[in-house]
């Protein structure tokens, strides 16, 4: 479904994605791991056709995704229907005067048909039923995250890109969301820096460090490998002088 070959993407003369190649099959559930600034958000925006690389090529379902390709309205609408992104910065994603209108924003723009039942299911899962008439910007951080998530889930794309979707959610909603994502037919790429939640979000882990893929394989193999965790920056070691020993621990 997704084929990236030798992608080099730089911003402000700084290389963000460096010779990155990856391929994703249909219905795969991928967890994108990496410490802050490793390039996770940039990669997701790139896969969503919002920013473009200086080198390499990106194919989505065989189609080469370029700025020119997305300039054509038909291509733009079809691609947006099939590939949807939840931004890490939720405030940037909200554009409507009520939660209800926010939920219908993409559906109406892209001409997607959704049954009332499907919309109700997502609203109920995220507990938004009593917030439908609220101004999205007046909601708390967690509630805004739920609204933005609902907006993306209602598009029901073939490729679901979620950037830190659980960062502001409480345990109960996180669990429901994980179950919901697992039940979807869509391919998903979910970024997180939580090693605890990673095994629940997917089977395959892609780990980034300084814009490069340093691991591509099973999630459990990664989170249980001390050396790999250390290489990716998830573990640190320091001298505990009082005890006179070196130790390392999970972040």
């Amino acid at each position: 479904m997704v084929e990236c070959k030798d992608i080099v993407l730089s911003q402000n003369e700084q290389i963000i994605l460096d010779s990155l190649s990856l391929s994703v099959k249909e219905k795969e559930k991928i967890v994108l791991l990496g410490i802050n600034g490793s390039g996770k958000s940039t990669l997701l925006k790139f896969l969503n056709g919002l920013i473009f690389s200086q080198q390499g090529e990106y194919r989505f379902k065989g189609e080469l995704i370029t700025a020119n390709f997305l300039k054509k309205k038909e291509n733009f609408v079809n691609f947006r229907k099939e590939c949807s992104l939840l931004f890490q910065n939720i405030d940037a994603m909200l554009f409507s005067e009520s939660v209800k209108k926010e939920l219908l924003f993409s559906i109406e723009l892209l001409g997607i048909q959704r049954e009332e039942k499907e919309i109700d299911q997502v609203i109920k899962m995220l507990g938004l039923h009593d917030k439908l008439d609220s101004f999205p910007f007046m909601l708390s951080g967690g509630e805004k995250q739920k609204v933005a998530l609902a907006c993306v889930l209602l598009v029901n794309p073939e490729l679901l890109l979620l950037d830190e979707p659980l960062s502001s959610l409480d345990h109960g909603v996180s669990k429901k969301l994980i179950d919901y994502i697992q039940s979807l037919e869509s391919t998903s790429i979910i970024s997180t820096h939580s090693l605890v939640l990673a095994p629940e979000l997917g089977e395959r882990a892609i780990v980034l460090k300084e814009g490069k893929i340093i691991y591509d394989g099973g999630v459990n193999s990664f989170v249980n490998n001390h050396e790999l965790l250390h290489k990716a920056g998830f573990l640190h070691t320091h001298d505990a002088q009082d005890l006179g020993i070196w130790h390392s621990h999970k972040k």
Partner: peptide, 16 residues
């Protein structure tokens, strides 16, 4: 920064 992100998010959500 927010305006730049807003612009990307608008496109991402289907605003042509």
């Amino acid at each position: 920064l927010l305006s730049k992100e807003n612009n990307l998010a608008l496109r991402s959500r289907g605003y042509y």
